[in-house]
């Protein structure tokens, strides 16, 4: 269940010890005064930060991104905190609600269960990447028309899953949609409207 919340990250912890030792060794080379001053200025921290960051290149909504992330950063937090793409939502962080659904190389994934570093070289599509300028994606249009939401918080994840649902060929009947698509929770209870939106997009047969 709770993964990274309570469990210390052993890799990170050992790297920290290593860094502490190496900093101590370095300190010997300095005069004591310089070592104290270095510690006071938080250089230790900055060294640690640099070592803990890993370079990552990926494409998000068609735009190449080059970032540095800690190995423990999830794709969800990378998108929201570093790339400022807050359309992708955090609803549980445990892969249980679907609010964070994005497409990685065309497949739907829970971005909260995907470490950012594993998306090296991948194409990521988020809700912000669906519309073409001012023109909404057909699924966005259908959600609007059928009122497939209330508070709107689960909506980006619902829409990303809904698009995938059709692409995966699982949107032939209301029953199939309800069965296949139950990994996206909507607490406001817009499910019937969401099913209607998906059915309409499917029936129109547009390329998604």
């Amino acid at each position: 269940m709770s993964t990274h919340n309570n469990e210390p990250n052993p890799n990170s912890s050992s790297r920290r010890s290593f860094l502490k030792q190496s900093t101590a060794l370095t300190a010997i080379a300095f005069t004591p005064g310089a070592a104290v001053s270095a510690a006071q200025k938080g250089w230790d921290e900055q060294v640690a930060l640099a070592f803990e960051q890993l370079p990552l290149r990926l494409k998000v909504n068609g735009i190449a991104q080059q970032v540095n992330v800690e190995a423990r950063v999830t794709l969800l937090d990378l998108l929201r905190d570093q790339l400022h793409l807050t359309g992708t939502k955090k609803g549980c962080d445990y892969g249980q609600c679907g609010a964070c659904t994005v497409h990685v190389n065309g497949e739907r994934v829970n971005s909260c269960l995907t470490l950012a570093i594993t998306t090296e070289g991948c194409q990521v599509t988020t809700i912000e990447g669906l519309a073409k300028g001012e023109e909404l994606h057909p699924m966005q249009q259908a959600f609007l028309k059928h009122d497939g939401f209330q508070c709107g918080y689960c909506t980006p994840g619902q829409i990303m899953s809904a698009v995938a649902c059709i692409k995966e060929g699982h949107a032939d009947s209301p029953e199939e949609i309800r069965r296949v698509y139950e990994c996206n929770i909507c607490r406001c209870g817009a499910y019937p409207n969401i099913v209607n939106a998906i059915l309409e997009v499917k029936a129109k047969g547009e390329k998604l």
Partner: peptide
């Protein structure tokens, strides 16, 4: 009528 804030919600533009 469609929700007046609907467009913000379906595009990810709504900020919580």
């Amino acid at each position: 009528i469609d929700r007046v804030d609907g467009r913000m919600k379906v595009t990810g533009g709504a900020k919580y």
